[in-house]
Amino acid sequence: MANFKEIINKNKTVLIDFSATWCGPCQTLAPILKDVKDHYGDRLTVIKIDVDKNEALSRSFAVQGVPTLILYSNGNQVWRQSGVLTKRELVSIIDVHSA
Rank of each mutant, 00 (worst) to 15 (best):
residue 26 C to Y: 00
residue 32 I to Q: 01
residue 1 M to K: 13
residue 93 I to K: 00
residue 6 E to V: 06
residue 75 G to L: 07
residue 66 V to H: 06
residue 95 D to R: 12
residue 94 I to G: 08
residue 29 L to V: 12
residue 87 K to T: 12
residue 48 K to C: 02
residue 22 W to R: 04
residue 57 L to W: 06
residue 65 G to N: 14
residue 28 T to S: 15
residue 32 I to H: 12
residue 61 F to Q: 02
residue 99 A to H: 15
residue 62 A to M: 14
residue 6 E to L: 01
residue 17 D to V: 05
residue 31 P to N: 07
residue 1 M to Q: 12
residue 90 L to M: 01
residue 74 N to Y: 04
residue 41 G to C: 10
residue 92 S to V: 12
residue 57 L to H: 00
residue 2 A to V: 13
residue 48 K to Y: 04
residue 10 K to G: 08
residue 84 V to M: 06
residue 15 L to H: 11
residue 24 G to D: 09
residue 83 G to M: 12
residue 1 M to V: 14
residue 88 R to G: 14
residue 57 L to A: 05
residue 7 I to Q: 13
residue 27 Q to N: 08
residue 19 S to V: 09
residue 58 S to I: 01
residue 51 V to G: 03
residue 35 D to F: 06
residue 11 N to R: 03
residue 90 L to T: 00
residue 97 H to L: 06
residue 4 F to Y: 04
residue 60 S to E: 12
residue 77 Q to W: 08
residue 30 A to W: 10
residue 39 H to A: 07
residue 1 M to R: 13
residue 78 V to P: 07
residue 98 S to E: 07
residue 64 Q to F: 15
residue 80 R to H: 03
residue 19 S to A: 15
residue 8 I to Y: 11
residue 66 V to T: 14
residue 25 P to M: 08
residue 66 V to E: 12
residue 20 A to P: 02
residue 50 D to G: 02
residue 42 D to Q: 10
residue 66 V to M: 13
residue 76 N to T: 11
residue 14 V to C: 02
residue 54 N to L: 00
residue 69 L to P: 01
residue 96 V to W: 14
residue 59 R to T: 13
residue 99 A to C: 14
residue 72 Y to T: 04
residue 7 I to F: 01
residue 51 V to I: 02
residue 44 L to F: 10
residue 80 R to V: 02
residue 8 I to E: 09
residue 11 N to P: 08
residue 30 A to N: 06
residue 52 D to S: 03
